[in-house]
């Protein structure tokens, strides 16, 4: 079968591209659309490095076919900041040293955005369980959880 034409919205911009039927959204983002901020750590939905938001729900882009993206709204790490103004989540990750190698960071930031959009005042336990699908091997999660708490407080206007 030849490639399928996909029309979708990515980070607020209309996008069209061609995808093989079996290609993952992750591969389309990285290889076709050059949006390499979304990372592949496992390709099996176990690490969360490829987290994107589709129509308000976060998911692993490695578990979505690129052709399924048609007609949906997708947010990737490249769409979190507004121009050159960082999102408070990004700012708090920096201030809290919540990244060491930084490879898992895009996935964590997108997942945190999805959390705080839904629950502006999560407990530490809620943060830890929400982010359980995002693996980090460097930080031991401590500073990530604190960054999320700080970002939530800032976004609430605290």
């Amino acid at each position: 079968m030849s490639k399928i034409h996909v029309e979708t919205t990515i980070n607020g911009e209309p996008m069209e591209f061609l995808a093989n039927p079996g290609e993952s959204l992750l591969d389309a983002l990285r290889n076709t659309l050059n949006l390499t901020g979304t990372k592949e750590g496992c390709g099996s939905g176990d690490c969360g490095a490829c987290t994107v938001i589709i129509d308000g729900r976060m998911t692993c882009s490695c578990l979505v076919l690129a052709v399924e993206a048609g007609g949906h709204e997708i947010t990737t790490i490249e769409g979190i900041a507004q121009g050159d103004t960082l999102h408070p989540i990004q700012q708090k990750f920096l201030e809290n040293a919540a990244l060491q190698c930084g490879f898992c960071t895009p996935g964590f930031i997108v997942a945190t955005k999805a959390l705080l959009d839904k629950n502006p005042n999560p407990t530490e336990t809620e943060i830890r369980f929400w982010l359980a699908g995002n693996l980090c091997r460097c930080t031991g999660y401590d500073k990530i959880v604190r960054a999320v708490q700080d970002a939530a407080a800032e976004m609430r206007g605290g």
Binding site: R30, G37, E40, Q90, L94, L99, I109
Partner: peptide, 14 residues
């Protein structure tokens, strides 16, 4: 830092 929280940083596979 900014490159790594915005997805701009280029890792091996990028």
């Amino acid at each position: 830092g900014v490159d790594k929280v915005t997805g701009r940083a280029v890792y091996g596979a990028d």
